[in-house]
Write a protein that binds this DNA or RNA. Structure first.
Length: 682
DNA sequence: TGACTGTGGGTTTTT
DNA sequence: CCCACAGTCA
């Protein structure tokens, strides 16, 4: 998105804040947190941290973990927050209390309340807090912070508006709807593509818009510029099966195009092979390249089979989403140390690293600390030296505390990369990993190394973000970035087939799309098939999936599938039967006919916007020159942007150089000389 | 304290 | 099938 903006307005794009709701608000909170009683270096709890903390609270309250299922409680708390129900308010909302009582879980409000207190004590916000706390910041309006952001964001644009929830909309209203506001709000959305109801998104936000903004102007975008007619019409036909929808007729003038192909397979493994076969065929007969192809599936675990065959066929691919890099144990361990270093109160981080690598501080000791913390109201960190334990353990605890304090001291003087490297070594993590010489062990060590590389890259990114409140390269900002990292961030230059979940594919497009695993219970998922609303959301998801295709759409299903240790024999998805036969190349019940794709029919289309090429620069011979020697008119070399000419230098103390880089995209970039590593060429 | 073993349960999508 | 967790024993 930022790259597209830059193409239109040039370098000024730097001044635009563009990001997810979560990342944008986290950026604000990083500056304003202290106004609402959080430290500015607050931790962001991810789903694992959140669930672990909920588990701990349930245990502390001596409630049965069968009745109080962690996932159920989490979603209860999350939706309460997303509807602006505070822990205090919760017991007063009859509807919620009645539901809880009906489910025999009357103590949810207490868990919610204790959970919230623990987060606050730990200086931590969960994903929902980034919205919730921001709302309260604007609502309580200390130091007239509301005015500051209203002035700052004179124009607000929201994409994929159908996926916003009540709370996000409430925040938007705070920012754009007030006495004297120009109400410069522009939203783009499609109710047919609403696929996040499970996390609180509501189409009501679209419907309420004209009430909240009476001068609203609506523009219907009914022309599809992406796909050919068979695909568009099939999509139209499918969405008609939903009762709840805003009427519209999408059309395309890109010609009939290819019909939709359906592949029937005897087994999930065969599906992998047949899809790989079809990809080879498209590549050779239609000259489609890897980067024009995507395989979309309902669940991330389906990727494995396709990976296997793509590898076997030597087709380059990249899997997005799933268990992300940042969720791997070894990565979370190192991040845990870093989190604890910048925020000692972070309980989840402390529990994670206190005995890893082994320091003889096991369950008994940790339980004692946790109990003391619960009874005194102190944080676990403070209890490290207070808890009553044998003298030997006392020493070990002291040593651990000193270790972390040493990291913290060091963080004041070195950059994030040096700190992380130091922590990785001094904590014993590296040695522990090195001791494991299995293939997996080597992989884990490699992961840690590439995490360190990532931090290095982050530190060396010296471009000035204008209009940003801070352009911070500290470890706190780094941790925030990765906590809110989306899998779009992983997109990189290269000619690979894309493998991702249908959810992740929203907003993207490919010449050729394979939607796989079209079986009852899988797509639609058995989790949502039961209710009309659930089923309609699955159908919208299918709608999203097939409308990613520009020219070629292939659907596949298997009649037997191995899942959770058992072989299942699913029926084909009902969605297949909802596609009018006229758009299908073959009826999937019959044996496949010979493909009627005209040979050498070259596929055309707009090239997808890709990340700009990264210059290959000989980093081995790169030697940064001292900032003080950089003068206007000099020719300099930058590790990422290549050669450039210093156009001008502004500022007295914090000097900012405007440099014209001709190798990368012929643009001017403003770099802070405080951070910039430039080598003087002449 | 920590390694080891067996049991049992869940099982989707994402910030 | 895979993971988490409880219980056992040195």
């Amino acid at each position: 998105m930022k790259e597209r903006i830059e193409k239109v307005v040039g370098n000024k794009a730097n001044q635009v804040w563009a990001g997810t709701f979560h990342s944008t608000f986290a950026k604000i909170l990083r500056v304003e947190a202290e106004k609402i009683g959080y430290p500015s270096n607050f931790t962001i709890y991810d789903t694992d941290d959140t669930k672990n903390l909920i588990k701990a609270v349930i245990k502390d309250m001596n409630l049965s973990k069968e009745t109080y299922n962690t996932n159920a409680i989490y979603s209860r708390i999350s939706s309460a927050k997303s509807s602006l129900v505070t822990p205090k308010l919760y017991p007063q909302v009859q509807e919620l209390m009645l539901q809880d009582r009906a489910n025999r879980r009357p103590y949810i409000h207490e868990i919610y309340s204790k959970y919230t207190a623990r987060c606050k004590k730990a200086g931590a916000m969960d994903f929902d807090d980034l919205l919730f706390q921001l709302y309260y910041l604007l609502h309580l309006n200390p130091d007239n912070v509301l005015d500051k952001y209203r002035k700052k964001f004179k124009y607000v644009l929201v994409d994929e508006f159908q996926d916003t929830n009540y709370l996000q909309y409430a925040i938007l209203k705070k920012l754009t709807k007030y006495e004297g506001s120009k109400q410069n709000l522009c939203v783009v959305g499609d109710d047919a593509q609403s696929i996040y109801a499970f996390r609180g998104a509501t189409v009501d936000n679209i419907l309420n818009l004209s009430t909240d903004y009476p001068s609203l102007k609506t523009f219907k975008l009914e022309q599809n510029y992406r796909s050919t007619e068979h695909i568009v019409q099939a999509a139209n036909a499918i969405i008609l099966f939903n009762k709840k929808q805003i009427q519209k007729k999408i059309w395309s003038d890109k010609g009939k195009g290819h019909k939709i192909k359906v592949i029937k397979c005897a087994a999930d493994t065969e599906e992998g092979k047949r899809v790989a076969d079809a990809i080879i065929e498209q590549k050779t007969r239609l000259h489609i390249s890897n980067s024009d192809i995507a395989i979309l599936y309902r669940t991330n675990s389906q990727s494995r089979i396709f990976e296997e065959y793509l590898r076997r066929f030597n087709i380059n691919y990249k899997v997005f989403g799933g268990t992300s890099f940042y969720q791997r144990k070894e990565i979370k361990d190192l991040l845990g140390y870093l989190r604890l270093t910048i925020n000692h109160q972070d309980e989840e981080a402390l529990k994670r690293v206190i005995n890893y690598p082994k320091r003889a501080l096991g369950k008994t000791t940790v339980d004692k600390i946790a109990a003391l913390a619960a009874s005194t109201g102190l944080t676990m960190w403070d209890c490290l030296t207070q808890v009553e334990v044998p003298a030997r353990t006392k020493d070990l605890l002291k040593k651990f505390k000193l270790l972390i304090e040493n990291f913290a001291q060091r963080s004041a003087t070195v950059d994030a990369y040096e700190l992380a490297t130091y922590v990785a070594r001094q904590s014993g993590l590296i040695n522990r990993l090195k001791a494991d010489t299995t293939i997996e062990g080597l992989g884990r060590l490699e992961n840690v190394t590439s995490l360190l590389d990532g931090i290095k890259e982050f530190v060396e990114n010296d471009e000035v973000i204008e209009g940003a409140i801070e352009s911070d390269r500290g470890i706190a900002t780094y941790l925030q970035n990765i906590a809110l990292h989306t899998n779009m961030d992983e997109e990189e230059e290269g000619n690979y087939v894309t493998l991702m979940s249908t959810h992740s594919a929203k907003g993207l497009e490919f010449k050729s799309v394979f939607v796989v695993g079209l079986e009852e219970s899988l797509f639609p998922s058995f989790m949502s098939m039961g209710t009309q609303a659930g089923l309609e959301e699955e159908r919208r998801l299918f709608y999203v999936a097939i409308t990613r295709a520009e020219e070629l759409l292939t659907l596949s299903f298997a009649t037997s599938r191995y899942r959770h240790g058992k072989t299942n024999y699913p029926d084909p998805s009902r969605f297949l039967a909802e596609i009018p036969a006229i758009h299908l190349e073959t009826t999937y019940n019959n044996a496949p006919q010979a493909a009627n794709i005209a040979p050498r029919a070259r596929v055309s289309g707009v090239k997808r916007v890709r990340k700009q090429a990264i210059l290959k620069i000989d980093t081995a011979n790169f030697r940064a020159s001292p900032a003080s020697e950089i003068k206007e008119g000099m020719k300099v070399l930058h590790k990422k942007f290549g050669e450039g000419k210093v156009v001008k230098i502004d500022g007295a103390r914090d000097k900012i150089a405007t440099i014209h880089f001709h190798q990368i995209d012929n643009s001017e970039r403003r770099l802070s000389l405080k951070f910039a590593k430039l080598q003087i060429l002449e």
